[in-house]
Design a protein around this nucleic acid. Structure first.
Lengths: 349, 349
DNA sequence: CGACGTTTGGCAACCGGTTGACACAATGCC
DNA sequence: GGCATTGTGTCAACCGGTTGCCAAACGTCG
């Protein structure tokens, strides 16, 4: 295939004019190393990949040659016969949602540490886009992580059929997943609210198709009555600042004195809208967020929230994916209530 | 190599026990399509890749066969002879810095639109880690984007030698880059401050090795004197909330009434620390941030800032990288001053 | 000193595509 | 009808690794 090479070289000389994407051309191959060390290519492959298979002396000589020439294996060429690419995928619903910053970072850290590279895609909160992203990423990776997937159980099971898959904050039988135990955090938040005299609280819910939303509501439904508190679900239009803002009329109508939100964005949106209409937080309304994203501490009053260890979650997902951790025995991380200033005693009106 | 396949199948049946990362095994190849359509594999390759080279009738037949079998080209196998992987890299200094959310999103959008996949890496604000990330990503991609690189010009030039590279917010002669024109935004901010009676302002600077930091300072040094304002550089320890917080003593010592910060994180850190020590913002101190990240609007008072179109910047970087846009003729995006509540008249003390 | 077992290294096939060169029509022209 | 021309499809080599199998070299022991 002298031809391909010629084309590539031609493209290379054109660069500077236009940054056409071209592969690195002059790369050192095992053939170069083999020639340099006076052995056959297969011996090089084994020396570098199978410790012990080759005599120590030859192995040493080959390693020296490789180092001298600056040899780096071509991952693509390796992937072809082995089927492993040493890359992992991560698909999130929305990059600009701060929840994912730490998740992405945790995942990237764990992957890099284990010698994997991350490829990233966004699914825009839509099942169709998610399906698309999955198909684009799938052939490239050894497996991937789906954060808060919007696809239904059936579709996910089909995907897991021939690609390894780990879900974050979603449980589907037969598919590995990492979830956070929200009960301790929610219980602590409820105790805190009750101690401040709140007996009737609202839950500003998240997307209807979100598993984690259902889970949070479920736990609240168990834990609130147990404490003799009333709880009511107040739907939001979207899990964002706007969704929180738009929910204020419904919150006032519901007549609750304290709220737990599906996430911090909703909580902050509501908090700011409440203030804008003259309500005092926490005097008139106590608000508890969820996730402890960047920004929760920046609002005034600072947002009380249930912290989810997102970085650890991302890391755990990758560890499970590459088989370092057994998802069965792995203890789920626990969410933790972080009281700040947006919760306090109910003011008698 | 029947052996490899056997191994893979064996691994596949083991799944469920342990999610070992395995390639998709049963994938449809051009050989399957060729057999199904009654032509040779090379004809399939051409029918799918080179429109016109094959007669319309056969092309149609092959496309039908491909669709029926659900054929998807193996990107790895394609990358080997062509040298193009259809993936692009993006390396940022710090994932948890909100500046990058929009940048990443813009880049991912543009890449997905053009049929590319993004791989992501973090360089931890360190030249060594950056170099590492570059080497890990390089063999995998057709080119990559380096956001705010910490490497020196020489190293960058060496990299650009045999991989296409686009820099964000950094100019190095001979390397394509996308930058934001900060002059209009900074000028507007200075005008705004002068109109409020500020005549002596400080610049809370960013990392010493950051090109964009130098650029911002340079423009301030030109524009402030032109308006008859004094300007002084106040160094920070790191471009984060903590760095801003720690800078307060130096700010007080400098005796300025208004500040422009290298980024919003520093600005917010300072703002909160100032309030914590009893200072009024903007009464005692006017603060202007940079970037307009998520969170700038959440603090009280809301942060006045110079908005940088980060999403557009990420998109532009990718477009330049894949040759859709000529970096020469491409008009740089302009930063824009967004007055909010953290700037106001200097209170007479 | 020869039979035998164990290392050690090389050969060649293969992963799944791409593409130059070529053979074999089918067509056009004189 | 013969010849050049154009169109269409196939052959085979190649990208850069991995690995089953085999042969040569080596060491051991009776």
């Amino acid at each position: 295939m002298g031809h391909v090479n010629r084309d590539i070289e031609k493209a290379a000389t054109d660069v500077g004019q236009q940054p056409v994407a071209i592969g690195r051309q002059g790369a050192v191959t095992i053939y170069d190393v083999a020639r340099h060390a006076g052995v056959s290519p297969s011996t090089v492959s084994r020396a570098l990949g199978k410790p012990g298979r080759i005599s120590a002396r030859t192995e040493r000589r080959i390693q020296d040659a490789a180092a001298e020439l600056g040899y780096r294996a071509n991952p693509m060429a390796r992937a072809l016969p082995t089927g492993r690419t040493q890359t992992l995928g991560l698909i999130v619903t929305d990059f600009t949602n701060p929840v994912y910053f730490d998740l992405v970072r945790g995942a990237e850290r764990a992957a890099a540490e284990a010698g994997y590279t991350m490829v990233l895609a966004e699914s825009q909160e839509s099942g169709a886009a998610e399906s698309n992203a999955v198909e684009r990423v799938r052939p490239l990776v050894d497996g991937f992580v789906l954060a808060a997937p919007r696809l239904d159980d059936e579709a996910l099971t089909a995907i897991a059929q021939d690609t390894s898959l780990v879900l974050v904050n979603r449980a589907v039988t037969g598919i590995a997943s990492v979830v956070v135990d929200v009960r301790t955090g929610l219980s602590a938040a409820l105790d805190h609210l009750r101690a401040h005299g709140h007996s009737s609280i609202g839950y500003l819910s998240g997307p209807a198709r979100s598993w984690i939303n259902a889970r949070r509501w479920e736990v609240l439904m168990e834990e609130a009555p147990r404490r003799g508190m009333h709880i009511v679900e107040i739907p939001t239009t979207e899990p964002t600042l706007v969704g929180g803002r738009d929910a204020l009329p419904r919150v006032r109508a519901a007549g609750v004195s304290a709220l737990v939100a599906y996430n911090d964005l909703i909580a902050i949106g509501l908090l700011r809208e409440a203030q804008a209409t003259g309500l005092d937080v926490p005097g008139d309304l106590s608000i508890v967020g969820f996730d402890d994203i960047f920004g929760a501490e920046l609002v005034t009053p600072e947002l009380s929230t249930i912290r989810v260890p997102l970085g650890a979650l991302g890391e755990a997902a990758i560890r499970v994916l590459i088989g370092r951790v057994d998802p069965e025995t792995h203890e789920p991380a626990k969410a933790e209530f972080v009281p700040r200033q947006s919760t306090g005693p109910a003011r008698s009106r």
